[in-house]
Design a protein around this nucleic acid. Structure first.
Length: 468
RNA sequence: GGCGCGGUAGCCAAGUGGUAAGGCAAAGGUCUGCAAAACCUUUAUUCGUCGGUUCGAUCCCGACCCGCGCCUCCA
């Protein structure tokens, strides 16, 4: 089945292929580094990670650019308040963001680009827009005049044609000709940092960085542009207006947007006390893999209800998969293959792919995996399972984990070593042989106290590190 | 008000015009020195409400109720 995505622009599911040379040129809106990122942010970034991995699994090469917005009103406000330079202030949160991404096993984009490293490019683009009469200057700030872009609203499917004439009362401190016009370049206010430039001193507006950096690195038409649904308007709409006014070409072929995350059935907000950063959850003892699993388990276009129950369920679900893998690796199977079981594995693998091909239906893909796990466990219990089946099952599990990436435990430093564990297990096995079950149980309990779970099986003892 | 998304078992959550995936939780059972793991059985005659189309609707249409997002910088 062919890969297809829901395209916000067309409001339909469309088959996806990159425009040229099998490389997907993708731009995604990264964080504004004024604070630690919260789990709502990571819902979107986890979706992007699954997207990346599935695109590669589908045989495409990736050229993915993600921006770091390191200049904006909040950053300036906080940096000024803390008597820090912009760079010093944003470095802290940029670093924190990259650490958080690593914790959640989110792949790094091929290129991470910072807005402040592209000021000249932005100024140049604003000048070119000015040369084509798309801009005007007011009080030293430069604005994009949206009445010069008739298609404005095509992404968010808003009809602005009736609103353009009568400008509303402006709540902004800046003077705009029309309420919908947006700033390309903002004149500095008292005490604010600014860049000198051919269009006067100031700093870039929010939207221009994405247009400029995307076009610079990926060309005039992207294959995919993605982000959270809240960016559809005005951010992405404005990007389209700028970019297409600049190039005369469609800015992006596919627009993908992740729905919002709820917390315990309510919207996440600081005032409700249900606002969590990744660090908050780790401090409470939740595993990164469980967080990743929960964020990835619902399809990206549905809002996801993030609950602490769900986090616990996710950890247990991961354990089920890890147990399965451990069993495949440690049990002894007779040589050969059972053909019906091979067919079952192939069928499950196909179902997994079909689900992800279908606009990244992760919930359905997981169902395919779990149904298979049950069937394979049954086959192992009944003795039908052969060595060849185990190899095929491990391969399928590997495919699953190359996308979901939750099977590898996050091991804390300072834990008991593998060799020490093996030594203790040998002790216990000897005790069991002597029918000294009291000693055997004592060893098992001691190991459990150190986070090691032992399991007696027909093929011998196997162990695993406790995950929750 | 405009645009968009959603309301499916105790919780999370897929899905299809033909009779409800999966995970977690709960109960019982098999296996086991005891555990653990695994497996089996049970748990929505029903998919927000009310109408309509249809031989048949959770899935299509209409109305209504509820929740969420965007509508000037929030993923």
């Amino acid at each position: 089945m062919a890969l297809r995505f829901y395209n916000t622009l067309s409001q339909r599911v469309e088959e996806f292929l990159p425009a040229r040379d099998n490389t997907v040129r993708m731009y995604t809106c990264g964080p504004t580094v004024y604070d630690y990122a919260h789990i709502g942010n990571f819902r979107t970034f986890t979706f992007l990670d699954i997207l990346r991995k599935w695109l590669r699994a589908s045989g495409f090469r990736l050229d993915h650019v993600m921006n770091i917005t390191d200049v904006d009103d909040k950053i300036i406000r906080n940096a000024v308040a803390q008597h820090k330079t912009l760079g010093d202030y944003t470095e802290t949160y940029t670093k924190a963001f990259l650490e958080d991404c690593a914790t959640l096993r989110l792949e790094r984009a091929e290129r991470l680009v910072r807005a402040t490293a592209h000021i000249d490019d932005m100024v140049g683009a604003i000048e070119r827009l000015g040369a084509r009469d798309h801009t005007y200057t007011s009080d030293g700030s430069v604005y994009f005049r949206i009445s010069t872009f008739p298609e404005y609203g095509k992404l968010s499917h808003n009809d602005f044609s009736g609103n353009l004439a009568g400008a509303r009362v402006d709540v902004d401190e800046y003077e705009k000709a029309d309420a919908r016009d947006f700033a390309l370049w903002k004149a500095p206010k008292e005490g604010e940092p600014f860049w000198p430039s051919a269009i006067g001193p100031g700093r870039p507006g929010w939207h221009i960085e994405c247009s400029v950096m995307a076009i610079k690195y990926l060309g005039e038409t992207l294959d995919i542009h993605a982000g959270g649904v809240d960016l559809i308007f005005p951010h992405h709409e404005n990007e389209i207006a700028q970019s297409e006014s600049l190039t005369g070409k469609p800015f992006a072929r596919f627009w993908l947007h992740a729905e919002f995350l709820m917390v315990e059935g309510q919207k996440m907000s600081k005032s409700l006390g249900n606002y969590y950063t990744l660090r908050d959850l780790l401090d409470r003892g939740y595993q990164p893999e469980a967080i990743r699993y929960l964020l990835a388990s619902a399809p990206y276009r549905k809002s996801l209800n993030f609950t602490f129950d769900g986090l616990k369920s996710s950890a247990i679900a991961i354990d089920r998969l890890r147990n399965f893998k451990l069993r495949l690796e440690t049990d002894q199977y007779p040589e050969g293959v059972d053909e019906p079981l091979m067919a079952r594995t192939a069928q499950a693998s196909q179902a997994f792919s079909d689900s992800l091909d279908d606009d990244l239906n992760t919930a359905e893909a997981l169902a395919a995996v779990f149904e298979y796990v049950r069937d394979a466990n049954s086959a192992m219990d009944s003795g039908e399972f052969r060595a060849g089946n185990a190899a095929a099952a491990l391969q399928f599990l590997g495919r699953f984990d190359s996308i979901f990436d939750v099977l590898r435990p996050t091991v804390a430093s300072g834990e008991i070593s593998d060799t020490e564990i093996d030594r203790r297990i040998a002790e216990r096995t000897a005790a069991k042989k002597a029918r000294n079950f009291a000693l055997a149980d004592q060893v098992r309990d001691q190991l459990l106290g150190q986070g090691i779970i032992l399991e007696d099986t027909k093929s011998g003892v196997r162990w695993k590190r406790k995950s929750s």
